[in-house]
Design a protein around this nucleic acid. Structure first.
Lengths: 324, 324
DNA sequence: TTTCATATGTCAAGCGCTTAACATATTTTT
DNA sequence: AAAAATATGTTAAGCGCTTGACATATGAAA
């Protein structure tokens, strides 16, 4: 392995000078600088980031804990997180907790051990605040944890828009189908507000929940099948994600229920899938790019000891398409 | 920050003993071991992985370079890569090249600097072998690069199965629609063989390509729209991905072309979407889990200096559903 | 009793890099 | 001519951990 010393020798300077060039500190002649860069190039040398992290006490790595990257919402989010982090010269270390509390804890500790500068936490099986000592900057997504800044899209507004829209389209018998409400997630607010708004209009909402957010297509379909087999005469469904909405629509069509004529289906997230589906899925858009941008920005502020927002609630938007 | 020294002091032993406990080396009394673990627990201590990497000259981190994680095929792959890596106590550092050659190069060098133990490379905008000195274990996906082991699913068989299936379903006018064939990817073999097999049956294949794999839904739709506007009377389409197949089906339905009655559409990958779509998409399954498992296994063998396969071609499978 | 396996300690180098402190030139500015 | 700015070198500590070399002590086996 090529080290700074090799570069120094070949360039005929000392390691201090090389270090000065690399870190752009102190006085350094333009000529020397060029020479050093040239030798670095020749030797295909890159400063050892591990050694730098150790001395600088800063790794320039951010940890990201997601339930699973194999879900379009999270993969989109991750894609943007990576992009914005990279722009600020931060790298991403990835963890998929699969919503297992033990794994979540393991990963958290692993990231601490790796000396990541901060953690983006979007998996909340665990009450991490009470179970762990949190001694580094963390920003959570979609969950409010005492003492930690959080970011989310406006779930309350999402629930409100959903109710208003379905009611405006003339739906009279509503259902909500989404992830488990057992986890203490801010996204549960969607259902709460949705139910309230519906109630205010004299409409009751049936509630269907997946097993602990399994993110499993089969479960979505099974749940959808259940709705139609019960013959509860639902005419408006608010789904927790476009993926669920798609499963519902498919199941409806199988049962010869026309969407949107007989049944309005409203999704959430505005995944690519929403425009790809037939009918195109009306949905409530969560701005993943903005969430990622804001998350990285706030997290890095925390990392740098700057002041940062505790509460970051981004706007959501109703996108009317064909399924309602 | 808590260090080994703190643990040693509190446990009333020396750092050597603590290190022996942590690394499970030399003689150590059960009692001492427990005491040390207990103190580690009390102090919420985790060995600094950065320092360990430096001394051990091994980071236990693997780099993953993908075109984008925001595509179901790659996010599924990544999800498994992470899972298998984690099982072997390796962490994942993630890079999205977005198919920009410059970024790909940057990322590669960044990962070298980070002292990752190996790289999984699935983005090939760049002829990395000729542009860079490769001085660490790398395994590529879907591209054969001189001197590097590679892994892929059997693209030739995929092309063959596709042709056989569409022809067996009675299609007479075929088209292929997929990513750009400009990149030197093994997946181009699908098209080659597909075309050959079709030709052998006296059927010509029209070829539609996306701009440099943009992975962009809009482009898929535009391309699909083009096919139908040209009125070329296509009755069988082989798509490079289920995502493209979905766009094609949607566009077909918009044009009142029935799938599968008037047009057979065959996808690739077997994404979750394929079963979620209506009609369900017949497809050729790439075994992402196996690809990931094998990739991690071979890569780690290379990392450990063990013998490993240069060539890993995994089987694909035709999954017949409703779109053909 | 001698030997040996077991258990721990002491000491120190080294992983590659940063950085402070200080020395020494050479230029440039006052 | 003196002072200040510029450019580089020398030296060495330190980041947290691992590991080899060696010393020492205890209890068990030969």
């Amino acid at each position: 392995m090529t080290t700074q010393k090799d570069v120094a020798e070949k360039a005929g300077v000392t390691v201090t000078t090389v270090s000065r060039v690399i870190n752009d500190r102190g006085y350094i002649a333009e000529e020397t600088k060029n020479k050093v860069f040239q030798v670095m190039e020749e030797l295909n040398y890159r400063p050892n980031a591990v050694a730098r992290s150790l001395t600088k006490q800063k790794s320039n790595v951010l940890g990201v804990i997601l339930p699973t990257v194999n879900h379009p919402f999270f993969s989109s989010l991750l894609s943007y997180l990576e992009e914005f982090a990279y722009q600020q010269d931060y790298k991403i270390m990835l963890c998929n907790s699969r919503l297992e509390a033990e794994k979540e804890k393991d990963y958290f500790n692993m990231l601490r051990a790796q000396q990541v500068d901060g953690i983006f936490l979007a998996s909340h099986t665990l009450d991490i605040a009470s179970e762990m000592k949190i001694d580094l900057p963390v920003i959570t997504f979609d969950r409010k944890i005492e003492g930690l800044p959080y970011i989310c899209a406006d779930n309350k507004k999402g629930g409100r828009l959903a109710a208003e829209h379905l009611l405006a389209r003339g739906a009279k018998r509503l259902a909500y189908i989404g992830g488990s409400l057992e986890l203490d997630l801010l996204s549960n607010q969607r259902y709460q507000i949705f139910k309230e708004k519906a109630a205010a209009a004299g409409v009751r909402v049936q509630n269907y929940q997946c097993q602990l957010d399994s993110f499993d297509r089969r479960e979505y379909q099974q749940l959808a099948a259940q709705i139609f087999s019960e013959k509860k005469e639902v005419d408006g469904i608010f789904a927790g994600s476009d993926l669920i909405a798609a499963a519902v629509i498919k199941e409806a069509q199988k049962n010869r229920i026309r969407v949107p004529e007989d049944l309005k289906v409203l999704g959430y997230d505005d995944l690519e899938l929403a425009c790809l589906y037939n009918p195109e899925i009306t949905t409530i858009r969560q701005p993943t790019a903005e969430i990622a941008r804001e998350a990285v920005e706030q997290l890095l502020k925390a990392v740098n000891g700057e002041e940062h927002q505790q509460k970051n609630i981004l706007d959501v938007e109703l996108i009317v398409r064909e399924s309602t």
